[in-house]
Amino acid sequence: MQELSRSDIQCILDLSEQFIELNRQDNKKLRDLQGRTQINLFFENSTRTRTSFELAGKRLGADTINMSVEASSTKKGETLIDTAMTLNAMHPDVLVVRHPDSGAVALLSQKVDCAVVNGGDGQHEHPTQALLDALTIRRRLNRLEGLTVAIAGDVMHSRVARSNIYLLNTMGARVRVIAPPTLLPSGIERLGVEAFTDMRRGLRDVDVVMMLRLQRERMQGSFLPSVREYYHFYGLDHEKLSHAKPDALIMHPGPMNRGVEIDTEVADDIHRSVIREQVEMGVAVRMAVLRLLVAGGGNGNGGDA
């Protein structure tokens, strides 16, 4: 995401718009990627992202295969690079890769000839999530430039936060992050955000609230004392939300922990919560990314952005 320019992003979002319409029709099948092979290579569990990529590929006419690899088995035996070489020998046209280690997707992309899409690497980036978030916001609020967006929750461990920070900054939005100090990574301000540890202050007059998933295992790392305290100070409820603009959008990359980072009523607020729309946009954005990277015979290596 860091490497994508404003016009790159605009181009992807514009193309995605076309696919939204298509996805709402009865016949959703295109032939843009007919005959192409897409491998979804997931070293980390994910149902949503993998399904979304799979649907995107299928709707474009590609043959899609899912491969789930236990990261622990690659540690012991076959290295990531061996896996990449093996798959490369099967001549896929595009690999969609998710991996628990930051930088692993970029490493893999150096070893294969086909396009590689980053489906999330460690705590580094999750570019298609940022793109689908941008598409969702743009459709609701008609713009990205000039908006104030608050990203709240476990910023430290979040690749979604990082990709969104880069994208939103590139598109001219103002970005805030809100988290308890133990979950704010060092030097985060240098990424072009304003950091808040007080959620109410951080939410003041924002146009969009992006909630991040809190992983329960963070409790063991002594990042936080308890879920109860976290929800009290950093869970999004109607009271805290009242500090944002009255029509502020509520977003969440999923899967949600209701009652941990977000109140159930807020999550289901049909006027403001766009969480389900995000899922819809996800398929469209991924179709756009796949089409741009794969169609037209290009096997450019720009896909690991």
Partner: peptide, 15 residues
């Protein structure tokens, strides 16, 4: 090293 670059790369830093 802990700091901006580690945060950008999504790597755990050593202070």
């Amino acid at each position: 090293n802990e700091g901006e670059l580690a945060t950008r790369l999504g790597l755990k830093g050593i202070p």
